[in-house]
Amino acid sequence: MMVWFLWCILISLILYFLNLFIKTIGTPNRKFKHAVKQKRYYIIDDKNNVRKNFLLTYKGVVLEGEKHIDSDINSFRVDSIYIWTHNSADLTKLDLPDYLFIEQKIHKQYPKAKINWNNPFFELMR
C-alpha cells in the first residue's frame, strides 16, 4: 500500500514539473528577454486591448509604446502611438534605418496610427 502511495506522489511530482516546464518555455516575457540578449526584433503586444502598452526590442534596445485610440466614441482604432525608452543611453545603438524599420513593423499592426517618438535623438536625425 505504501509503495503505491509513493509511486502516485512521484508521478504527480513529475507531471507537475513537466507542466511547469512547458508553461515556462512558451511565455512571452521569456521570449522577449531572449530576443533582447540576441539583439533581434520582438514585440509583446495585446492587439485586443488598446489600452495596454506594448514592449518591443530591436538591437538590444527595449522600447515601450503607448497606444491612443481615436476620439470617436464608437471607434476602438489606434490613432497614435508614443514610443520611448527607459534607458536613453541605449538610443546610440540605433540609427535612422533602425527607427524606420521599427516604424514599418508597427505600421503592419496599426496601419493608420501616427507614430511619435518621445526622444530628441530621432527628431535630430530627421
Rank of each mutant, 00 (worst) to 15 (best):
M2C: 07
M2T: 10
M2Y: 11
V3K: 10
F5N: 11
F5S: 14
L6Y: 08
L6M: 08
L6T: 07
I9M: 13
L10V: 11
S12R: 00
S12L: 05
I14L: 14
L15M: 11
Y16G: 08
Y16F: 10
F17P: 04
F17C: 11
L20H: 11
K23G: 08
G26N: 15
P28I: 09
P28Q: 11
K31Y: 04
K31Q: 12
K31L: 15
K33S: 13
K33R: 07
H34G: 09
A35D: 04
K39S: 14
R40L: 10
R40Y: 00
Y41G: 03
Y41P: 01
Y42F: 15
N48I: 01
N49M: 05
V50A: 09
R51I: 04
K52F: 10
F54P: 00
F54R: 00
L56S: 01
T57S: 06
K59S: 01
V61T: 00
L63C: 02
L63K: 00
K67T: 02
H68V: 10
H68K: 07
I69E: 13
D70M: 05
D70S: 12
S71L: 14
S75K: 05
R77H: 12
R77V: 14
R77E: 15
D79H: 15
W84L: 04
T85Y: 00
T85K: 01
N87D: 13
N87A: 08
N87K: 09
S88C: 09
D90P: 05
D90N: 14
L91R: 04
K93R: 14
L94C: 08
D95C: 14
P97V: 13
D98K: 03
D98Q: 05
D98S: 12
F101S: 02
F101D: 03
E103Y: 07
E103T: 07
Q104R: 09
K108L: 14
Y110P: 02
K112N: 13
A113M: 03
A113K: 00
N116D: 06
W117D: 00
W117Y: 06
N119K: 02
P120A: 10
F121V: 09
F122I: 00
R126G: 03
R126I: 06
